[in-house]
C-alpha cells in the first residue's frame, strides 16, 4: 500500500494556464523520488498540490490520496515542506528555536517547555554549530545554509512521513548545497521518511533518489528507477537533459 497515490492530477491556475496535466504517481513509505524539470514544467506545482499548498485561484482535477494513512495528510504533521528560499519560510521576528518548537507545539500538542527541548535537539540534529546558542538567534543572524538547516529542523519537527524539498538547495552555493543534500539524505534514512526531491539538477537528484520522474510542460514524460533512467533514458527530453548536464568529466567543446 503506497503512502501517497496520485491519479489523473491536473492543476489549472486562475489565468487559465494548465500547469499540470494527467499525472499518475505512487510513492511508497520510505521511498525517495526525485521530480526533475525546467521552469514551467509543473514540478513545483506537483509538490504544492501534494502538500495542499496551492493558491486558492488554482483548480484541481484528479485525486491525491494517502492509502497508508487512511486519511488526508496534514502539512506540518504528516508532511514537512522545505522551500527554496529559507528567508521567506522563516518568520524574521521569532527566534529560530521557537519557530521549530512551534511546529511540535501545534502539530503534536506538545507543551512549550517540551517543544523547546525538542527544538534544541532538532537544531543539533541538523548540525547547526552551537545549537543551544543559535536557538535564540533570529533568521537574519544566520547564513543561507544555516537558515535552510533551521527550515529543515522545522519541517521534521512533528516526525512527518514525507519530506518535500522544493529546490531546497538551488539558492545555495555548491559547497553548501552538497552539505544540505547530505543532511537530507541522513535525516530521511534515520527517520524512515519518504522524500519528494524537486530539482532542476538531474545529477544532484540521481545521487539521492531511488526513482526519478521527469516533467515537461506540465506532464510527466518519464518515470523510472534512477539507474535505468540514467543508463537508458526512454524519452528524447530526458536524453537532452542528461546531455546538457555539466559535470567535471565532460566538456561542451569549449575551453579546456
Amino acid at each position: 500500500m503506497p503512502l501517497l497515490s496520485i491519479r489523473g492530477l491536473g492543476v489549472r491556475y486562475g489565468n487559465n494556464v494548465q500547469a499540470l496535466d494527467g499525472v499518475d504517481l505512487d510513492l511508497g513509505a520510505g521511498e525517495r523520488l526525485a521530480i526533475i524539470g525546467e521552469s514551467g514544467s509543473g514540478k513545483s506545482t506537483l509538490a504544492r498540490a501534494v502538500a495542499a499548498l496551492l493558491p486558492p485561484t488554482a483548480t484541481l482535477q484528479g485525486k491525491v490520496t494517502w492509502p497508508e494513512l487512511g486519511r488526508v495528510a496534514r502539512n506540518g504533521r504528516d508532511i514537512g515542506f522545505v522551500f527554496q528560499d529559507p528567508a521567506s519560510s522563516l518568520d524574521p521576528v521569532i527566534s529560530v528555536g521557537d519557530q521549530v518548537a512551534e511546529v511540535a507545539h501545534v502539530n503534536l500538542d506538545m507543551a512549550w517547555p517540551a517543544a523547546r527541548r525538542l527544538a534544541g535537539e532538532l537544531l543539533d540534529r541538523v548540525r547547526l554549530p552551537e545549537p543551544a546558542l543559535l536557538a535564540s538567534a533570529y533568521p537574519h543572524q544566520l547564513s543561507g545554509g544555516q537558515k535552510q538547516r533551521v527550515a529543515i529542523a522545522a519541517a521534521i519537527a512533528a516526525g512527518p512521513r514525507l519530506l518535500i524539498a522544493d529546490e531546497a538547495t538551488s539558492a545555495l552555493d555548491t559547497i553548501v548545497q552538497a552539505e544540505i543534500v547530505a543532511l537530507i539524505r541522513r535525516l530521511v534514512d534515520e527517520d524512515g521518511m519518504a522524500l519528494l526531491f524537486v530539482s532542476h539538477d538531474i545529477a544532484l537528484a540521481a545521487n539521492l533518489a531511488d526513482r526519478i520522474a521527469v516533467f515537461r510542460h506540465g506532464r510527466m514524460v518519464e518515470l523510472a528507477a534512477t539507474g535505468d533512467l540514467i543508463a537508458a533514458p526512454v524519452s528524447d527530453y530526458t536524453r537532452a537533459l542528461l546531455g546538457a548536464h555539466l559535470g567535471l568529466g565532460a566538456a561542451l567543446g569549449a575551453g579546456a
Partner: peptide
C-alpha cells in the same frame, strides 16, 4: 592554474571542497 589540472587535482582545501561538491551523474563516474 590550468582548468583541467585544477579540476583533476585541486590543491587548496576550497578547491577540493568545490570538486567534491559538484554533482556528477552516477553513470559518468
Amino acid at each position: 592554474g590550468a582548468a583541467r589540472a585544477v579540476i583533476a587535482a585541486p590543491v587548496s582545501a576550497t578547491g577540493k571542497a568545490l570538486v567534491a561538491a559538484t554533482p556528477e551523474l552516477p553513470v559518468s563516474k
